[in-house]
Simulated scan of single mutants.
Amino acid sequence: MADAGHSEEANTTTETATGPEAAAFDYDVAIVGGGPTGCSAGLFTGRYGLDTVVFDRGRSSLQRCAYLENYLGFPGGIDIETFYGLIHDHVEEAGCDLVSDLVEAVEPAGDDAAATANAAGPGFAVTTQSGETVTARRVVAAARYGGDFLEPLGDDEMFVTYEYDGETRTKFDRDYADIEGRTPIDGLYVAAPVSEVNVQAIMSAGQGARVGRSVITDHRLERGYPEDLARHWDWIRPEAELADEAAARDDWRERFDSRVPDDCDRSEERLRELREADVERQREMYVSDETVETRAERGRERLAARLGFDAGSDSDSDSDAE
């Protein structure tokens, strides 16, 4: 059984009812910023099944922190190096590519590099400091410090001017994106910098998750899901709750159909494909007790490996023996 969140539907190439098959890109999603914000967004898009790359810019506000003591789940706090190692392990486990390089420019993909993203159509070219370029259908800006790499997109509304020491300077407008990260440019999302959100690591991670879900929602809309069915929830439940799987599947189909608007312009065939993909995704949310235990053990082993000790060791016994 596939892991919950890894939807096979996400990677199919069936033509949607809203337009022709999308052009091929290197990635579905490119995320600029490998801190809590970007990794949290990548965790959601990667687990859903979207091909995602996370660029770790190497400069993060969190790296200026001496020690992290207010991130839930670490009662004794955690050092920054170990925390970064854990969040990077997590996005890679979710299927994301992690690239340690600085993104210098995000431009419209296509032949006319001077055109704006809206004029050139969907898709972006992401170029790094090392000179490598990849294309992506969607880009998430998740770097708190600055947004200069977005200047090639040509939208002056991204930036505001201010006076400093007698000089007029320009900076990225922290209110450019809406609360869910969407911007006026199709396919561009901003998770950081955002006003009053990126001031604590745990808040930044929450905003990254919000934006990651926005990306998934828009992907599902593009695939043809009606608006009321486009949002995605990433969770797992015990298989024991499925007393009658056949009945549950029928209920999910009925619930799907009840939320399709009367004026929906999707074909019956396409709605049936989407409904069955959605039913299968919901089925994958339920896992056996054995699977839960296997995943729990793997989780402990991965954490132990990062912390540098054996997950099967008895720390109390070791202490007594000293």
Rank of each mutant, 00 (worst) to 15 (best):
K171R: 15
K171A: 13
A209T: 13
F159K: 02
D155K: 04
V211G: 06
E151M: 10
E222W: 05
D165A: 14
L150G: 10
R213A: 13
A192G: 08
R182L: 12
G166N: 05
E157A: 14
G187F: 03
D218P: 06
L221E: 14
A205I: 03
G187V: 04
Y162P: 04
I179G: 09
P184I: 05
P238H: 09
L153C: 09
L150A: 09
S204K: 08
G147E: 11
R144P: 00
A142N: 03
Y176V: 01
N198A: 11
R169Q: 15
E196W: 08
A230W: 02
G187A: 03
G147P: 03
K171W: 05
D178I: 01
D155W: 04
V211F: 02
G224R: 07
D156R: 10
V140N: 07
E196A: 13
L150F: 11
G187R: 08
R231L: 08
D178Q: 09
R182P: 01
T217Y: 10
L221T: 11
I236E: 09
I202K: 12
I236F: 12
R231M: 08
V211M: 03
I216P: 01
I202W: 10
V190D: 06
P238K: 09
E227M: 10
D156E: 15
L188V: 07
I185L: 14
R220E: 05
D186H: 05
E167K: 15
A177F: 07
G206A: 15
H219K: 01
